[in-house]
């Protein structure tokens, strides 16, 4: 016969489940089920209308043999530099500069964070204008005497991917900064005083106190921005659509083309699954790299 203690624990467990259930159902319905279903679709030949036929592994085989996939994955990895590495560095720099309260701090935070609240599509269209032949970027270059290097940046064979990446840098830096500033607020002031007593300056304070204290925030920021780089679709779609000459294709764009232009749902799903695995691999690697060593 169960004692009172066990019954109470069971009731507590059921109550907890009841609390979790609504969110759990939404998560299962809108995240887990579509994911599982996509994996299922990746084993079918299906045009979206006619009866689907089993495909075995052939969709995956064609994903790995498609010559367009390799460059697209490579572009996504290059984008990690612009979406994750540079924004984190800029975020840390801004944190070091703004930490401890600067006049107009809220203003700075709003300005740097603003790109985050804008939809990527709006960001993309705005930057298409800025990068245009007679856009603001080229006007600025001409104004400082660099008229010789002006070009339609997003249409340039060599610079399009970099130009695209810098839009990501602009959009992501504010996010990193806000995360790091929030993290920096919980650092004990006495640690800084200790460095100052030892004769350390601002650079020393940053590297011995701020940077280690922000480990958690840096992990989060890197994970979010890396996912944004690997799974990017909207930015490439509205600015270059993969051009010129497929120099800015990203896996997300190819998934879209396979599903909607070519009506090849099976291959689109297979590529989506592969992309998910790539994302998981990168996120795991970041978490390992930034883990605190005992």
């Amino acid at each position: 016969m169960p004692d009172g203690n066990t019954t109470a624990r069971r009731v507590r467990r059921l109550t907890a489940l009841a609390y979790v259930a609504p969110a759990g159902l939404v998560y299962a319905g809108f995240a887990l089920w579509p994911a599982v279903h996509t994996a299922y679709l990746s084993f079918l030949h299906w045009d979206g209308i006619s009866a689907a036929t089993p495909a075995g592994l052939s969709n995956y085989r064609s994903v790995f043999t498609d010559p367009a996939i390799g460059p697209a994955l490579w572009h996504a990895i290059v984008l990690i530099v612009f979406f994750a590495v540079i924004p984190c560095a800029i975020g840390l720099l801004l944190t070091a500069l703004l930490q401890g309260g600067v006049r107009g701090m809220t203003g700075f935070r709003i300005v740097f964070f603003l790109p985050q609240v804008l939809p990527m599509v709006a960001v993309g269209i705005t930057w298409r204008w800025l990068y245009a032949d007679d856009g603001l970027v080229n006007q600025a270059l001409r104004a400082v005497g660099l008229g010789g290097i002006t070009r339609a940046w997003l249409g340039d064979y060599n610079f399009a991917l970099i130009a695209l990446g810098l839009i990501g840098t602009w959009a992501m830096s504010g996010l990193c900064m806000v995360l790091f500033l929030a993290g920096a607020q919980k650092i004990d002031i006495s640690l800084y005083e200790a460095v100052a007593l030892d004769g350390g300056g601002a650079v020393r304070r940053f590297f011995t106190v701020t940077l280690p204290a922000l480990r958690g925030e840096i992990t989060i920021a890197s994970v979010i921005t890396t996912i944004a780089a690997l799974a990017s679709f909207d930015l490439a779609f509205v600015t270059t659509n993969g051009g010129p000459v497929n120099r800015t294709t990203v896996p997300g764009l190819l998934v879209y083309r396979l599903a909607f232009n070519e009506s090849d749902i099976g291959r689109a799903a297979a590529l989506a699954v592969v992309l998910t695995i790539v994302v998981i691999v990168f996120v795991t690697a970041i978490r390992r790299l930034t883990r605190e060593r005992p």
């Binding site: 994911a35 979206g48 997300g252």
Partner: peptide, 12 residues
């Protein structure tokens, strides 16, 4: 965002 793409495919 990646989720939305998945849902779109699944909706088909």
């Amino acid at each position: 965002r990646p989720l939305a793409a998945t849902i779109a495919v699944a909706a088909l």
